Simulated scan of single mutants.
Amino acid sequence: MKKLLMVLGVLLLGGIFTAFTLSASSFGNTVAGPFEDVVSAIKQGDASSLSRFLDNNVEINIAGKANSYSKAQAEVILKDFFSKNQVKTFELVHQGGEGSRFGIGTLATSGGTYRLSFFLQKKGGSMVLNELRFENK
C-alpha cells in the first residue's frame, strides 16, 4: 500500500511539473505579430495603435465612400470614424495569406454594424496596412 501511495505521489508531482512546464513554455512563446496587433487595435477602436501599421498611402472605404489617403490623413479619418462609432465587438470571420495577410470580420459599433476587411502587405522588413473597408451590413 505504501508503494502504491508513493508511486501515485510521484505521478501526481510529475503531472503537475509537466503541466506547469507546458503552461510556462506556451506563455513564453505567445508573441503577437502585426496581424494580431491590427485585430487588437480594431477590437479596441484604437486608431493610434492602428496607425502604427499604416502604409504611406492607404485606401479607406467607409460605407461606399472610398479614397486614397496619406498616412497622416488616414489616421485622422480613422480617429473620426472610431469616435463616432464606438466599438462594441469585432469578430474575425476569415483570414488568410502568406506574404500578404488579410482579415474579414464583423464590427459592431454604436453607429451600426460593418463588414470590415483589411489588407496587410509585406514592405521591406515589416507588414503595412494598405487598405481598410468598412461596409454597412
Rank of each mutant, 00 (worst) to 15 (best):
S51W: 01
G97A: 09
L92A: 05
N29L: 11
A47E: 02
R133W: 12
Q73W: 04
N56M: 07
K84E: 03
L11E: 04
A32Q: 14
R133F: 03
R133V: 15
D55E: 14
K43E: 10
Q95D: 15
L11D: 08
L54I: 03
G103M: 01
E135M: 12
K88Y: 11
K88P: 00
V87L: 07
E135C: 06
D80R: 14
G96C: 05
I62L: 10
R115S: 12
M6Q: 13
F82M: 05
S25A: 13
S83D: 09
A72H: 03
Q44F: 03
N67R: 11
S83R: 15
V7A: 10
E91V: 08
F35H: 08
K2C: 05
A19C: 03
G105K: 02
K84A: 15
N67Y: 07
K79E: 14
S40Q: 11
F134G: 01
G111A: 14
G103I: 01
F90V: 03
G15K: 07
G111T: 00
N136M: 15
R101W: 07
S68H: 05
A24L: 11
S25L: 12
F53S: 02
T21R: 08
D55F: 13
L78V: 04
S23G: 15
S110Q: 14
F35R: 05
F134E: 00
L13P: 00
S48Y: 08
F81R: 00
A32T: 12
V7R: 12
I62D: 02
L120M: 13
S49C: 02
V87K: 00
A63C: 12
K123G: 10
E91D: 12
N67T: 11
V128W: 03
E135Y: 03
L22E: 08
V10E: 07
L8S: 15
I62Q: 04
L5V: 15
E91Y: 11
V87I: 13
K122W: 08
S26K: 11
G14D: 06
I42F: 03
G112E: 06
L54A: 13
V87D: 01
V7Y: 13
Q73I: 04
F134N: 00
K122C: 05
Q44N: 06
G111V: 06
S51L: 08
N85I: 07
F20S: 11
S110P: 07
T113A: 04
S26W: 11
D46S: 01
H94V: 10
Q44D: 13
S83C: 06
T89R: 10
